[in-house]
Write a protein that binds this DNA or RNA. Sequence first.
RNA 1: GGGCGUGUAGCUCAACAGGCAGAGCAGUGGCCUUUUAAGCCAUUGGUUCAGGGUUCGAAUCCCUGCACGCUCACCA
Length: 505
Amino acid sequence: MELSELEKIRLKKVFELRAGGIEPYPTRANRTHTSQEAIAAFEAAEKQADPAPVEVTLAGRLRAIRPMGKVVFAHIEDGAGRIQLFFRVNELGEDQLRHFTEYFDLGDFIEAFGVMFRTRTGEVTLHVHRFRMLAKAISPLPAAKDEVVDGQIIRHATLSDPELRYRQRYADLAVNPEVREIFRKRAAIVRALREFLDERGFLEVETPILQPIYGGAAARPFITYHNQLKQQLYLRISFELYLKRLLVGGYERVYEIGRDFRNEGVSFKHNPEFTQLEFYMAYADYLKVMSLTEEMLAYVCDRVLGTRQVTFNGHVIDFNPPWRRISLREALIEAVGIDIAQHPTTESLAEAMRQKGLAVKPNAPRGKLIEGMLGDFVEPNLIQPTFIYDYPRDISPLAKNKPDDPNTVERFEGYVGGMELCNAFTELNDPLEQEKRFLEMGRTYEAEDEDRHPMDEDYLRAMAYGMPPNGGFGMGVDRLVMLLTDRRSIREVILFPHLREREDD
RNA sequence: GGGCGUGUAGCUCAACAGGCAGAGCAGUGGCCUUUUAAGCCAUUGGUUCAGGGUUCGAAUCCCUGCACGCUCACCA
């Protein structure tokens, strides 16, 4: 580890403390109160006629030090917030006060025992009688100063370099409280999703991440290898095929929240590993799932934010059910003036697109062309929660046909804030039809196409035992967190987002 | 992968049109017994992302590379 001049000075203090018989990293701490507990205890005592002194031992990280000769003010930060410490020569003596100013730096963890009081300016503060080092920091935290105005912390020269923030998330979290708040909210969101599903009789399960055959979505997988079994394995790109096997097994409602891995490009809404929620519900269809989706997101908003009006990217998004519902066909007529029902073949659709001056991707099947127009012309405008429903069969090999239309499947996608948030369908449960679809996919796409769905014989075998009709649902949890925390980049809601490897790391 | 942009002290940023690389905060030394971006005096600190080129002279202009951001393509 290369040390800066600043770090060398601090390291020297570590050695000097040890030489003086003081352990700079003691084994145990003796905190009695958090910052907020101490303040609450003092304020409660203040209200009494003849209050006893409130003695506490606090612990936390030094975030501000203001020496004023024979007294020193400091602020420490702990998990609950901030609190001021007051050091005075009268109680501590010259030696101890000097010990503090010489050996304690910003970023150090300190333990302080004393009596709570209120300063002239009215701030509830710990009058320190004893203190000791809990953990000496060698490296300075990458932030300059905080100012507290009316209880609000204003940070001057805040850590803002995105690279440093993501690579050294610990430093980002240490100095940016609002970043800590994002991940508290993220935990609350996931908790609310679980509560919602648990309350409705869903069973949470865990299915393989290492899979011999990947499937359930259109994406390139990460490939790995099991040495002893001499077997190639894939990191899952979805949970779908395993969760539906469980319906064959007799569970009627299952869900999983976990990580998917897709070997694709990264962007503001894509990370190579991301968190997905999928659930499957026997005897439901996609309309039922649509309603449940509305209910679930409203529930999450209520639990996490206390409101269903969410500000995202300058828009106020209203999660109150019902969401706008529009068929894919109508949405495309509206957005690009092409009626896909009038163009049942790839060639006919491609021709219509050319007439509108749209680029047509060569060799793309009909469904991909439709999907392309959806992404280009519809998705960015879907700010308020919207369900787009009824998708082309050829891009939805696991979804069931509409009874009266063999080219269209019962599928919907939920869009919010201009992003696709979730995807769901009435699940295909006819094993013969499913086999046909797998074979179709193999024919429609080139062998190397990432959208090719590999044949999963075991999945077909499972379905052959009988799978109840069911509705399935998948949602990008990271994107939901983006929406509910008003973050425009997925990297802001993933603690350690993927970054290119650096040589000097 | 393509396009645009950014990279300067520990942190946040300056440095015009090529002419001695700077400020605030942090650090260090000193003064200061109710401050809160404390203040005052003094002071340390640089491979200007890396490598090459043009020039009497490069943080600045050119080339290559690296990283990050935005964006396009693919995907949730």
